[in-house]
Amino acid sequence: MVTQQAAVLSPEAMVEEFQKNGVTHVVTIPDSETNYLYELMKEQPWLDVVPASREGETFAIALGLLVAGQTPVVLIQNTGMMESGDSIRGMVLDAGFPLVMVVGYRGWNRHGVITDSAARYTEPFLNAFRINYYLVEQDADSTRISTAFEEARATKRPVAILVGDEYHGFNR
């Protein structure tokens, strides 16, 4: 029997977690389903949204912000994360700074049959880079975002938040 995702992750919950964890900048490339989150982020006076042209840029921009004493997060899709492999290596893992990367899990579903290769390779990619990750599907999961921040700070490594069902709640 197919189990469908009953609840969603609201953009308000995500932004609240960002504020709670002292985020100063969101370095991002929005995809077609994150427009509502983008608008909400732009409305926050404490948050600077940095739009990038290619996902590999986002990790390097984040490094510069970290050196400057800021607290950025990277917000991209899993496809762009895979494009960013060398940037993750050279600008995050080798640099030794804490960074939370919020990654839209395109193609992920609860059905157990993944037809989108973007989803099929997402977790193997993170495992290859030895980056720990947490799945967040709905508001009740949002405390895992704070867990990721705590882990990133403790380890001075990147930690990923995989947002299941492609930010469905933002698309309203």
Binding site: H25, V27, D48, V50, A52, G56, E57, T58, F59, A60, I61, A62, L63, G64, L65, L66, V67, A68, G69, Q70, P72, D86, S87, R89, G90, M91, D94, A95
Partner: peptide, 22 residues
């Protein structure tokens, strides 16, 4: 003087991040 490392042209991006942060 700052060495931001390299990753296939991404030092430019890191420099932008530094300028935005400072």
């Amino acid at each position: 003087d700052l060495n931001l490392g390299g990753a296939m042209g991404q030092t430019t991006s890191a420099a932008l991040g530094l300028a935005l942060g400072l």
